[in-house]
Amino acid sequence: MSMQDRPESLDGLLGFITAALPDEPTVTTEDRAALAKLKAKKRELEAQQEAKIPGVAQYRKRPVVVDALQWTGENIVAALNFFDAGRGTTVVNINAPADRSKGWIEIPTLEGKMRASVGDWIIRGVQGEFYPCREDIFRATYEAVEG
Rank of each mutant, 00 (worst) to 15 (best):
Y142R: 05
D136A: 11
G112P: 06
W104P: 03
G119R: 02
N95V: 13
A19C: 09
V66G: 00
T141W: 02
G112N: 12
N95Q: 13
G88R: 02
T72H: 03
G147F: 10
G147M: 11
R6G: 10
G86N: 02
W71K: 04
G112C: 06
E146P: 14
L110M: 12
I76L: 12
I76A: 04
A68C: 14
A116S: 06
D84K: 05
A78D: 04
G12F: 05
E106R: 14
Q70F: 00
L38F: 03
R32L: 05
W121C: 01
L80C: 03
G86K: 03
A98V: 15
V27M: 08
A79H: 04
S101D: 11
M114V: 01
E24P: 03
L69K: 02
E30L: 09
D67Q: 07
D67A: 04
F130C: 01
G112E: 12
E44R: 06
A96D: 14
I17N: 02
D31N: 10
K52I: 15
K39C: 02
N81D: 14
R100A: 09
G86L: 00
A47M: 07
L13Y: 06
K37N: 13
I123D: 00
F16Y: 13
A40D: 03
S9W: 05
G12C: 09
V145S: 12
S2Y: 08
A33W: 00
T28P: 01
K52L: 14
R134M: 01
N75F: 00
Y131H: 05
R139E: 09
L14I: 15
W121T: 00
K41N: 12
Y59S: 08
D136I: 08
A68V: 02
M3F: 08
W104K: 09
V91Q: 02
A20G: 12
K61S: 12
S101H: 09
S117A: 11
G103A: 06
T89H: 06
G125T: 00
G88P: 00
E74K: 11
E146G: 12
L110F: 10
A47W: 04
A40Y: 02
I76P: 00
W104L: 10
W104M: 11
L80I: 06
K102H: 14
V145P: 02
Q4R: 14
G125Y: 01
V77E: 15
Q49F: 11
G86A: 09
V64F: 08
D67T: 08
I94D: 07
P97N: 07
T28D: 08
Y142H: 10
D5T: 07
Y142C: 01
E44V: 06
I94Y: 04
P54F: 05
V64W: 09
L69Q: 02
N95G: 12
P63Q: 15
P54E: 06
R43Y: 03
Q127L: 11
E111S: 12
D23M: 13
N93W: 11
N93T: 11
T141V: 07
L13K: 04
R87L: 04
Q49M: 13
V145R: 15
S2K: 15
A36R: 06
E129C: 05
K102F: 11
N93S: 12
E106I: 07
V56E: 05
F16K: 08
A85R: 04
D84I: 03
V66D: 01
A47F: 05
P97K: 12
G73Q: 06
